[in-house]
Design a protein around this nucleic acid. Sequence first.
DNA 1: ACAATTTCGATCATATTCTATCGGAAAGCA
DNA 2: TGCTTTCCGATAGAATATGATCGAAATTGT
Lengths: 258, 258
Amino acid sequence: MTEMLASARQQRILEALREREQVRVTSLASELGVSEMTVRRDLNALAARGALVKVHGGATLDAAPTSSEPGFTHKLALEAAEKLAIAQAAVKLVKPGMSIALNSGTTTYALAAQCTDIKDLTVVTNSPRIAEIFYAAANPSQNIILTGGIRTISDALVGPLALTALDQLHVDLLFLGVHGMTAEDGFTTPNMLEAQTNQAFIRASARQIILADHTKWAVTGLCQIVPLSQVDALITGNRIDEEAKVILRQSLDTLILA
Amino acid sequence: MTEMLASARQQRILEALREREQVRVTSLASELGVSEMTVRRDLNALAARGALVKVHGGATLDAAPTSSEPGFTHKLALEAAEKLAIAQAAVKLVKPGMSIALNSGTTTYALAAQCTDIKDLTVVTNSPRIAEIFYAAANPSQNIILTGGIRTISDALVGPLALTALDQLHVDLLFLGVHGMTAEDGFTTPNMLEAQTNQAFIRASARQIILADHTKWAVTGLCQIVPLSQVDALITGNRIDEEAKVILRQSLDTLILA
DNA sequence: ACAATTTCGATCATATTCTATCGGAAAGCA
DNA sequence: TGCTTTCCGATAGAATATGATCGAAATTGT
């Protein structure tokens, strides 16, 4: 078997991981024809980029939910069906001529993809990736505003520039993706700068709608964005706990199950 | 085998890359009948234009394909050799620890590709595409600031948000790509909003360096950005008119011919 | 809790690859 | 012809990738 470039080998590790959900160091070593040490080094390199999560004996795509933030592209695959259902429920609230805001996140990304055909839409976002969706669609009646700032690993522009930009803007409707929600801690995110930016999003919007799939329930990130009761609506999947439904209905005006 | 022009050889490298997904320096050297050193130089040239990504042992197509704007990539091919030479002359002025600004343009794009390995660099840009270069390189010692705003067709973020952001920032060195330059009208651009943004770039910088290939001479865009004499230096190709060289040397402190 | 087994990471040695030069050949120019 | 410029190959030293080894750490079974 001909030698293989290191980058190609790492690509094959990712492919194997997508097929099998988890891989072992020993089996990868024999399959790829390299030593275990080399496999370990590849896994380290991939883990450093957030492409996978190392576990004892190998690696997996699934991440420890509370602390670490896996890469954006791989989060997309997680709960994709539910995210899509949430996005389809959310897009019904968006009417031609409105101005909306989308923060950075995989669920808001899914929503953005559904919004490209809506006429006379003004969109404010702090996600270059979401902006790119609208740029590529090139709908001339749409107005896309990117906030500026410094980009975090999860593709959010944050920092003083983002805050200044958002303080100058006002939108009808905000769709906010979050990383966790509990009765006590409200909506949370693991990144302090993102929390600050998301608070600016809330101040800049007349109505706020949280988008969160059911895995976000009972998860607490480092920073609170806002308590449950301070937003107007939440859209989530119907696989969420019954107990959670009760609590959310008490705290929020509107709970939409997609 | 008959001798082959350098450009034709690079074309064949790209073809091989498209067929095989990845190529190896050693195999390319024997297939093309040239030394490995020459293959490396070709790969460097192609990587500088973003046509491929170098990896240890060879090269591969960009793993994360970003949706590309046809107009932009086409422009990138024009005068590519001269743009690359200009970028290489410009990158010599960039030292670790500096803060620089890059406006949107194909020449500044080429420069950005050369800057990803410079340590402790702070980069301010209004081009999502240039920001993407640095995001992809993921150099942890670099700080990338995107100004925000509304995107023009030429990939520049402009408007009030961009202006507000730039007025808050100050950089050591600005590299400014322009669309035209003449003795009478100075440096110009066809887009009024971009002209306004570029003026903000100039205000935000201690030193200004214009990047312009020789085809920009004697071209006047709709809006003046700044007169010739108001910037510190110009880097252009040596194919520019002798007459232009004389005028530029009179108007500018520094004229660099790449 | 303890021991056996497996896995991990640090370190060294080796092999390959990369970069920075230098010098020569070929091509362009006066 | 003489000069400059560009392209190419060669070489050496630096950087990187890989594999082997061994003690440390984690997992498992009892």
